[in-house]
Amino acid sequence: MPDTTQPIVDFLVQFTAALGIKATVGVEQTANGPRLNIAGEEAELLVRHRGEPLKALQHVVDMAYGRSLPDDQRVFVDALEYRKGKDVELTQMAKLIAEKVKQSGVDQQLGPLNPYERRLVHIAVAEVPGVTTESIGDAFSKTVHISLRK
């Protein structure tokens, strides 16, 4: 494990202990950075309310440890693989919509999505030839517009 990951794991262990839940932190190293998954039955507390606590925890980790990682890497914080499942779902949805746009020629929109979710959509749609994506809006969450490439 790179020594930049260990402090983040230690932080999550401290956090779950403070919260009083029995949990373990799993680590998986990917090309995009470490993926940390909090496992254990009581980790369910973090995925309530549509995973809002998990999103908040991701933000705190980004603020506290984001800068300690190499530029092209990002920490990914998950619990019970909740976000992993959501990501797969969103990627499939994006591809499905892109195929629909390609066949019908009618533009489609997806969102509002946060920056991380938009990135997933842009990457997924890029795999469908002849279709292009654009983020629309000026707030933190934006809508992704999917249209035929001109």
Partner: peptide, 12 residues
């Protein structure tokens, strides 16, 4: 984010 996580701890 801190208020969300404080609420989570409170919820418990």
């Amino acid at each position: 984010a801190l208020r969300t996580l404080a609420a989570t701890a409170g919820e418990k």
